[in-house]
Computed example of a mutant assay.
Amino acid sequence: MEIGLILTALLSGGFIGAVLGFIGAGGAMVSVPILLYLFDFTPVAATTAALAVVFLAAVAGLGPKFKSKDVLVKEALTIWALGLLTNIGFGLIVAKIADSVILIGFSLVLLGAAYSMLKGPIKDSPEKKIPVWALVLLSLLIGSLTGLFGIGGGFLAIPVLVLFFHTPQNKAAGTSLLIIALNCLTAFLAKFSIWQEIDWGYPVLIALAAVLIARYTSRLAAKTPTVHLKRGFAFLLLGLAGFTILTQI
């Protein structure tokens, strides 16, 4: 492995871990472009390797969230279980989908995520229970995103939990990390047939750095204002989406 790429992998992992630790979402949305453009992975290999990286980082960030009781375990398990159909289904067939379709679809997801993060601060309101129909719809959509694009779906889960069900931001972020971990592990296992096609050297380094930073930043998240971080991250996603779309034109 080249020294320059080793340093790039470690810095990339640190950034991915910080995003997951502070925001509770977005790790895969930067992992996939990093593997695509900095390490020359194919789209299918990038989305598969990103699943492993983000799973490990999300698990690392979960420890402090469980200690502070900021994880809705039942809701997270329900969303994961209901989304198994689309998660595993798309995970099994994604290798047969054209790279251009995956990349354009991924770019559209980035645009949606950027929009959700650019919205103004959300005022606290009394918590509400999630109705069954909303759980089913949210779960199937998140499962689809994970199976197709290697995205854990946290960017979708957090605004839904906060905006529609008045879940406190910290608790929504913690629940999102558990959803991400479960979904990423499931989709990664569903793609076992292409594991041997991936050069795991750099993803392992990225994962190690992401795990260390995610655990540290997850402890700081409750005491750190994330408004400006989210806006900056949203603009980064807009740039990545635009660049990816231009490469496919």
Rank of each mutant, 00 (worst) to 15 (best):
K74R: 15
L36Y: 05
A45Q: 13
K74I: 02
A52L: 14
F39T: 13
T78K: 07
L35N: 02
K74N: 05
L36S: 13
A28H: 00
V54I: 05
S68M: 13
F66K: 11
L35M: 12
A52R: 07
Y37M: 11
Y37H: 15
P43K: 12
V71K: 08
I34H: 03
K69Q: 13
A57S: 12
F55G: 13
L35K: 06
G61I: 00
V30P: 04
V32F: 06
I34F: 05
A49E: 00
V73E: 04
E75M: 11
L51G: 07
D70G: 10
M29C: 15
L36M: 15
E75T: 09
V54G: 08
T78P: 00
A76C: 09
A58I: 01
L56P: 01
F55K: 10
G63Q: 04
I34T: 13
L36W: 03
V73C: 09
L36G: 13
P43M: 12
M29P: 01
I34A: 12
M29E: 12
E75D: 08
A45S: 15
T48S: 11
A60W: 07
T78E: 04
L72Q: 15
L56R: 11
S68V: 07
A45V: 09
A46D: 00
F66M: 09
P64F: 05
P64V: 01
Y37R: 13
L72W: 01
S31I: 14
V53F: 10
I34Y: 02
I79G: 04
V59D: 04
A76V: 04
A49T: 08
L72I: 09
T47K: 07
V32G: 02
T78I: 13
P43D: 04
V71T: 07
V54P: 01
E75C: 05
V59L: 14
S68F: 06
K67E: 12
M29H: 08
L77K: 11
V32E: 03
F66S: 05
A52T: 12
V53W: 02
K69M: 01
S31P: 00
V71Q: 06
V71R: 05
A52W: 02
V59R: 13
T42Q: 04
V59T: 05
K74D: 00
